[in-house]
Simulated scan of single mutants.
Amino acid sequence: MTIARREVLGLGGGLVAVLSLSQRDVWAEEVVEIRMQGRADGSHVWFDPIGVLIKPGQMVRWTNFNPGNSHTTTAYHPANFGRPLRMPESAKSWDSDYLLPGESFSVTFTEQGVYDYYCVPHEQAGMVGRIIVGEPEAHGGWMEAVAASRGLPDEALKAFPTVEEIRANRTIR
């Protein structure tokens, strides 16, 4: 079998095109895993990572790795138990309901902005997390949403990583 020069050049050009994809393009296709964790004695529970930066269209999957507890991932949104809005107004709210050990729940984020969420039974213990989607503009309303702290437990408010910290490191554990 003979391979024509044109075919070799075409294959080489295709390879160069694939290799030239930026890391950010490949990054958008990855599923971000967030583990729901807890100590065996129940004295401490948390999301790992607690803060993450993703691209619009990226999926986040929460999995309960805590053998002794059920957990939820629940958006701070009035639709969820009248909680304050701490996510983009135009984005769809979510609530996983209780996840038993080993169970997972996923959300695909399409709207740019800052999304805060919590575990319903463990919010008082500071089991909260923050997702930043894309590069939200400072005047886009996300700062006001993040500032909505009425009714949040002090432990939850202390646990949130800052927006700046997440932007600088992409993942906060």
Rank of each mutant, 00 (worst) to 15 (best):
H139T: 13
G113Q: 06
L100A: 15
P136Q: 04
P101K: 13
C119I: 05
D116N: 14
F65P: 00
T63R: 15
W62L: 05
A138I: 13
N64A: 04
N64K: 08
T108I: 09
G126M: 02
L85G: 07
M59W: 01
A138T: 12
A125C: 08
A91W: 07
R86H: 10
G140C: 09
Y118G: 05
M87D: 12
A79M: 07
I132C: 06
V133H: 08
Q58Y: 07
A138S: 13
P67E: 11
M127V: 08
G129P: 02
L100I: 00
F65L: 13
H122S: 08
H139A: 13
E137H: 04
S104A: 14
T73D: 01
E137T: 05
S106W: 02
H139C: 01
V128H: 08
L100F: 14
P121Y: 10
A79I: 04
E103F: 04
F81C: 02
T108L: 02
G126K: 10
A91I: 07
W94F: 15
M59G: 01
A75Y: 04
N69Y: 00
V120L: 13
T110P: 00
S90N: 12
E89H: 04
T63V: 14
Q124K: 15
P67K: 09
G57S: 12
L85C: 04
F105E: 07
F81R: 14
G126D: 06
Q112M: 12
G113M: 03
G134K: 05
H122Y: 15
M87C: 03
G68Y: 13
T73Y: 00
N66R: 00
R83F: 02
H139F: 09
I132Y: 09
E89R: 11
P67N: 05
Y76N: 03
R83Y: 08
S70N: 05
Q58M: 06
K92F: 00
S93P: 03
R61W: 02
W94T: 01
C119Y: 07
